[in-house]
Every structure is written in structure tokens, then in C-alpha cells.
């Protein structure tokens, strides 16, 4: 499982200020820090306050690429903003995200085809986030079928079963774990899976503890990627260890360092 670094997001004050003042320093600092910590992608989110998300997305992509060679995950519900970002991405990017809804899937998978991007597909539709695993898997199947019809290879489709905070939707936890396993049965080769990791701990007191225990459990259930805080050392250590226990990486005494380095 690898980390998509979550920190370049207009929801954070320093990034919001950087966007406002068109000062790339904070963005580039976080690009470098997340890369050094072992992120494999950098998530780019303009934040809810951006007045012109198209312009802001393009600017964020450009200044981030000056500081890091990592591929980017363009995170927006505004598909014009995503397309503006894709136009200036130097490496194949990831589109974050699309729900199992028409005509959104048409637009997003069409862009993915055109720009050779990966896509995060959300296991939800107009009716919202499903309560149980079966409905999530059914929506995942719609995403798989649509991606396939656009010729997107399954290794470029990341399905997000959608994680709810454990103090709000505690009953969703086990459903997410079941969904992670069942998604792997939908196609051969199977699609990949991703979660917005920090969602699990929104509004709780022990955020980091909850994040890393969830990460380890999700690795045990086959999770491929997480949008998460790459600079949380304990989280990275927990993921590296879970990968060893699941026989995904070969053990050696320096396995945590190796995990960090191999993300690049």
C-alpha cells in the first residue's frame, strides 16, 4: 500500500494563504517534505474557497512540479479544474474522483483515456454513501464496467469504498473491510483500492492512533493506496509493518526505511 500525500489542500491555512498570495513556497515545501517522507503521489486540492478553481488548479500543478517529480492526484469535484491540471501535468496523473453516476463517469473516464490518467472511483451515487458492503460492491462494479468500456486498465482504476468517521458511522467500518476484499473479485486483473484514510478519525480525540490502526487493518484486507499524511512517521511505520506481516514486502531489519525509499 502506498500513500498519496494529502497536504497540498486549500483546506489547510498555509496552502490557502499560498493560493491567495500566489506564493508557491508553502506548496513546494510540502511537496518536498511529503516526497522525502515516502509519498508516491501528491494530492492537489484547491480547497473550497478558491474563487477560480480552474486557474488555481493549474497554478498548483505547475508550482508543485517545480519542486517534486512525483505524479499528482488532482482532487476536485470541478472537472474543468481537473482537466486544466491534466493539461499541464508532466507525468501521468490520477483523477480524484468520480462517483458511480452518469454523466460524470463519461466525462472523467473520457479524460482519463485522453490524458492516460488513473482514476479514483467512489462507491457512491446520487443516493449517497451506501450503508452496506453489497451496495458498495455493486457500485464498484458499475465503475469497473464503465472504466473498461473506455479502455482504462484495471490497475489504473482505484475504487474508494468510502470511509466514515468512526464516531459517526461506526457500523460502516466492517462494511468497508468486506468491500475492500470483494472489490478484488470483480475483475481479473482486479481494480485497485484506495481510501481517504484520515476520514476515519474526523472529530475524534486520538486521530493518529485511529488512523494507523485503520491503515494496518486495511492493508490486511488488501488496500492498495491511501490518501493520508505521509509525514506521520508512526503511520508510515504501521503500514510498512503491516506489509511485512501480510508478506507483501520481504523482511529485513531496515524494512521501514526501505518502505519509505521504495515509494519513489
Amino acid at each position: 500500500m502506498f500513500i498519496i500525500g494529502e497536504r497540498i489542500n486549500g483546506m489547510f491555512k498555509d496552502i490557502a494563504q499560498a493560493i491567495r498570495e500566489q506564493d508557491p513556497r508553502a506548496v513546494q515545501e510540502w511537496a518536498r517534505r511529503q516526497e522525502a517522507a515516502g509519498a508516491r503521489y501528491l494530492d492537489i486540492n484547491t480547497g473550497p474557497a478558491a474563487k477560480d478553481p480552474v486557474k488555481v488548479m493549474r497554478w498548483l500543478v505547475e508550482v508543485t512540479q517545480e519542486a517534486s517529480d512525483l505524479p499528482l492526484a488532482l482532487d476536485s469535484t470541478n472537472y474543468d479544474a481537473i482537466e486544466a491540471g491534466l493539461e499541464v501535468c508532466k507525468r501521468p496523473a490520477m483523477i480524484n474522483s468520480v462517483p458511480a453516476e452518469w454523466p460524470k463517469m463519461e466525462r472523467v473516464f473520457g479524460m482519463a483515456q485522453k490524458y492516460n490518467s488513473a482514476v479514483i472511483g467512489l462507491a457512491m451515487n446520487e443516493q449517497g454513501i451506501p450503508k452496506d458492503a453489497d451496495t458498495r460492491v455493486a457500485l464498484a462494479m458499475e465503475l469497473v464496467a464503465c472504466a473498461d468500456s473506455y479502455g482504462i486498465p484495471m490497475e489504473d482504476l482505484y475504487i474508494d469504498p468510502l470511509v466514515l468517521p468512526c464516531n459517526v458511522g461506526q457500523d460502516h467500518g466492517p462494511e468497508v473491510m468486506v468491500t475492500l476484499r470483494q472489490i478484488k473479485l470483480l475483475a481479473d486483473p482486479p481494480p485497485r483500492t484506495v481510501v481517504g484514510l484520515s476520514n476515519i478519525s474526523q472529530g475524534t480525540k486520538n486521530r493518529e492512533l485511529i488512523n494507523r490502526i485503520f491503515a494496518a487493518m486495511a492493508v490486511a484486507n488488501g488496500l492498495d493506496a491511501a490518501i493520508a499524511d505521509a509525514c506521520d512517521d508512526h503511520l508510515v511505520e504501521a503500514i510498512a509493518t503491516a506489509r511485512i506481516i501480510m508478506n507483501l514486502d520481504i523482511y529485513c531489519d531496515s524494512y521501514v526505511d526501505v518502505y519509505r525509499k521504495q515509494q519513489k
Binding site: I250, Y251, C252, D253, S254, D257, V258
Partner: peptide
């Protein structure tokens, strides 16, 4: 020993 093999390379 695969573990020592990897560790030594590191």
C-alpha cells in the same frame, strides 16, 4: 537467508 541478503544490500 533472504532477509540478511536484503539487509546487507541496504
Amino acid at each position: 537467508d533472504i532477509n540478511i541478503c536484503k539487509q546487507l544490500n541496504i
